[in-house]
Design a protein around this nucleic acid. Structure first.
Length: 846
DNA sequence: GGCCCACGGGG
DNA sequence: GGGTACGTGGGCC
């Protein structure tokens, strides 16, 4: 029976059932809530070959014949065609070799890559499901109309179709995807990490905790043992049948644990919509847990890669991220608490476990719509998009655009090319106007909105428009100097660089960015006419956010060593223009007798009389800027301090600001990691608390001082001094003997077993020699070195926070008076911190 | 100063 | 059958 069905694409994959054609599968959901599986067996893989330039007609014909005659164990190319394509905008004739099975592609490519007629091969490494989506114009998380014949399936789908035809359709809305979050708890017992509890919660009212100790209670289901827990989990997922399984750090923690324990108990981890075990896909240094027909979204991956830039949170724990995004966090339990509860208060542990699933589900409600929009812009499926870095998102956007315009997709750089790019001389970045140290009042902040994308568009910065032939006779604006009018930068000469960009033909990347930016401003217009409470507002907001992310990442993509469209000169030119514009604005301000307090890359702080004054300045300077460059007035701050970092080095942004609503912004933080001692971590935490909650930097300083005294008097418990560091390779293989390696060696000679993967607990003890020489395993430590803990642990940790407020090591050690800073801090922080809207950020723009 | 090495999230 | 990949800071050499 011929059927027609419309659905939203959730996932795509392919199966290699035979040596012959592969099977493409598309999973989705209809408006009516049916799950769909659509199958396509008719799509064929291919790749391109660019012949050496200068081959004559006869030689090309010979090459075509040789390609047609290729033979691997009886397998032949199904088709060899000559096509007109473009490579970096220039037309090029290429051969397209069509094959039967995706695994044939690399095999046939290997055969031809060393031919003397072969200049280069292209598009041989686009995975098959991506190839299909690109060529059919299908967009994940967008809609398709499929005509086909319904077939039987033993997979978990309401409808299964063999595709006769498939085409994209326009529809903005999403179907009601089913989302389930889960979280597990584990303890170490007898050298194993056992799963003791698992919680689940979905967006349709289901929640459950599984465990095998204590009493069954509301929402708690008791199972026999760990194996029973795993089986019950699989059953629940199958019954609730979510489209999306959401975790927080599931790729690195929950799934590897499930996998280990399932193997131990001989349970097959069937969490997808087929009968297959979860697979782990390598992605660089980590693996991702994937199943078929159901999408595992690890929110931590997305937050770490993308969202962390817009978060003010210093660390990315579930607690801190939830606090910021959802306005509610959780009571954290450490490993000892969990073990204690497991032996006693199971109910308490169950609440804690469920809380994690709740927060994860809460986050997914907010973040999945953003990720969906990124899927639509990048054209990549949910599983992939949720794990992509900025560069990868940009890359896939470009790849999909390239296909539309008959551009051949440039190859990924090979390993030695990447290394070469990494080692190549770094170029000059953003301009920093050194901050005027001290306290200032009435400071206006201005910044360029999307500076680098604007430059890319305004100046047509693209690899194929660089130093073009057509404009070579007369590059314009050849002498761009300080004295010239600001508008001369609109010409195509890169300021201070011996390059120019084409004025006649729009570049590939500027063209894409221009459409992105136009599309975004259309959406922002619509946003203005939409009630902020309506669901449509959120959709539009997420859409413009996705576009902004992609546009802003484009500059980084030019300079990213793994980039297919790498161009150091483009990246360099963009920062050159960036410096040019911000310097022009600064020069203009100085000319008008404004005091410039600080400037960095795309922003500057000016001392102004009042808001009106600031707005007037903006108006005047904007008249001097190209219309495509958008300088904006971001706000007037009552006061602020700016802390210059060491001259010469790349200046770090370190400042604290207070606006009229008494919100404080502090920038320039870094975080303390786990290979620090507890005493350092605790001190830092308390310093933060004293400043933010008690509004008292003085208390914070005193807190550090008393800790130092305790250390000096030898009153600190070893537990607070231990540093934990993992051995990531066998002890013998270390070239450099760091403290943990030295401590591990000492442990071994005393008969304490250590091996690759062991976490070494050590203390830095008194004596002479390097830190490593004085690093002793916790079990063997007899004393500790106060100097090390004061100067290498506590003070640096405290200064991460305090330096942002202008304090130095000398202040902690009472070596200098601090009148002026204290005045600011008393005045500034004291009551203004009340508002609680406090930003602590290590983030630096761009 | 350059290079090696570990961390992050989770429990 | 093409993920090969990060970015930053401490301490050794």
């Amino acid at each position: 029976m011929a059927e027609k069905i419309e659905f939203c694409i959730l996932d795509t994959d392919y199966l290699l059932e035979t040596e012959r054609q592969a099977l493409i599968r598309i999973w989705g959901r209809t408006r009516e809530g049916k799950t769909v599986l659509a199958l396509d067996r008719r799509f064929l893989p291919f790749f391109y070959i660019l012949p050496k330039p200068g081959l004559d007609k006869g030689e090309l014909e010979d090459m075509e014949k040789r390609l047609k005659d290729l033979n691997i164990e009886g397998k032949r190319p199904l088709k060899v065609e000559m096509l007109d394509k473009k490579i970096y905008g220039k037309s090029a004739r290429v051969f397209r070799v069509t094959l039967e099975n995706p695994t044939d592609v690399p095999k046939f490519r290997d055969l031809v890559k060393n031919w003397k007629e072969t200049e280069e091969e292209y598009e041989y490494s686009i995975s098959f499901y991506r190839r299909y989506m690109i060529n059919k114009g299908l967009i994940p998380m967008a809609w398709v109309s499929v005509e086909g014949r319904e077939v039987k399936t033993d997979l978990q789908a309401d409808v299964c179709l063999e595709i006769d035809s498939i085409k994209p359709i326009k529809e903005e809305k999403y179907p009601n995807f089913r989302v389930m979050a889960f979280d597990l708890e584990a303890v170490h017992e007898d050298g194993e990490e056992r799963i003791i509890m698992l919680s689940m919660k979905d967006n349709r009212g289901f929640s459950r905790v599984l465990t095998y100790r204590g009493r069954k209670g509301r929402g708690i289901k008791l199972v026999k043992d760990e194996k029973g827990l795993l089986e019950e989990f699989l059953k629940a997922v199958r019954e609730r049948d979510p489209d999306i399984l959401a975790t927080y750090n599931g790729d690195r923690y929950d799934f590897p644990r499930l996998d280990e324990r399932a193997e131990k108990h001989k349970v097959t981890l069937t969490l997808g919509r087929d009968k297959k075990h979860v697979v782990f896909r390598r992605r660089g240094r980590i693996s991702s847990a994937q199943m078929n027909g159901r999408v595992h979204v690890d929110l931590y991956d997305f937050i770490e890669n993308i969202l962390s830039d817009t978060l003010s949170s210093e660390i990315l724990t579930l607690d801190s991220v939830s606090r910021e995004i959802l306005g509610k966090g959780k009571k954290d339990m450490d490993m000892k608490d969990i073990e204690k509860s497991w032996k006693g208060n199971i109910k308490h542990l169950a609440e804690h476990c469920m809380q994690d699933s709740e927060l994860t589900l809460g986050l997914s409600k907010r973040l999945l719509p953003q990720i969906f929009e990124l899927c639509r812009v990048s054209g990549q499926k949910l599983f992939d998009t949720a794990r992509m870095s900025y560069s990868q998102l940009v890359e896939w956007l470009l790849i999909r655009e390239a296909f539309k315009t008959d551009e051949i997709i440039p190859n990924m750089p090979r390993f030695d090319e990447i290394r070469k790019r990494r080692l190549s001389k770094s170029y000059v970045g953003g301009y920093v106007y050194p901050p005027e140290q001290g306290i200032h009042d009435k400071i206006a902040l201005f910044d360029f909105a999307s500076l680098y994308p604007s430059i890319t568009i305004t100046h047509n910065v693209s690899p194929e428009t660089l130093d073009c032939q057509c404009c070579s006779s007369k590059p314009i604006g050849a002498k761009v100097s300080e004295k010239e009018d600001i508008l001369s930068a609109r010409k195509n000469r890169v300021p201070g660089e011996p390059h120019y960009f084409c004025l006649r033909h729009k570049g590939f990347i500027p063209g894409i960015l221009e459409r992105l930016v136009e599309f975004r401003s259309e959406i922002r217009e619509k946003l203005k006419q939409t009630s902020p409470k309506s669901p449509r507002y959120k959709d539009l907001y997420n859409r413009q956010y996705a576009l902004k992310i992609l546009a802003n990442a484009s500059y980084g993509y030019y300079g990213y060593p793994g980039s297919r469209w790498y161009s150091k000169i483009c990246a360099q030119s963009i920062t050159a223009w960036g410096r040019f514009y911000i310097q022009k604005v600064i020069a203009f301000a100085k000319n008008r007798k404004y005091r410039v307090i600080y400037g960095d890359t795309d922003s500057l702080f000016l001392k102004v009389r009042n808001e009106k004054d600031a707005r007037k300045f903006l108006r005047d300077v904007k008249a001097k800027l190209p219309k495509t460059m958008h300088l904006a007035f971001k706000g007037l701050y009552k006061s602020g301090i700016f802390v210059p970092t060491k001259a010469g080095t790349a200046a770090k942004k370190r400042y604290a600001l207070i606006d009229s609503e008494e919100n404080i912004t502090i920038r320039g933080f870094e975080k303390v990691r786990r290979d620090w001692s507890d005493i350092a971590k605790k001190t830092q935490e308390e310093v933060l608390l004293h400043i933010l909650r008690d509004k008292s930097p003085e208390k914070a300083l005193n807190r550090v001082r008393s800790t130092i005294k305790r250390i000096e008097k030898g009153r600190v418990d070893f537990d607070d001094l231990v540093i934990y560091t993992q051995l990531t390779k066998p002890l013998e293989e270390y070239e450099q003997i760091g403290p943990h390696v030295a401590a591990a060696r000492k442990a071994r000679t005393k008969g304490i077993p250590v091996k690759e993967g062991s976490v070494i607990a050590y203390i830095i003890t008194k004596g002479t020699g390097s830190i490593s020489e004085r690093a002793v395993p916790l079990e063997l430590a007899k004393n500790y070195d106060p100097e090390y803990y004061i100067h290498n642990q506590v003070i640096p940790a405290a200064l991460r926070v305090l330096a942002g407020l202008g304090y130095t090591e000398d202040d902690i050690l009472k070596k200098r008076p601090q009148a002026s800073l204290d005045k600011f801090i008393q005045k500034g922080l004291k009551h203004r911190l009340k508002s609680g809207i406090t930003k602590l950020s290590r983030k630096e723009k761009n």
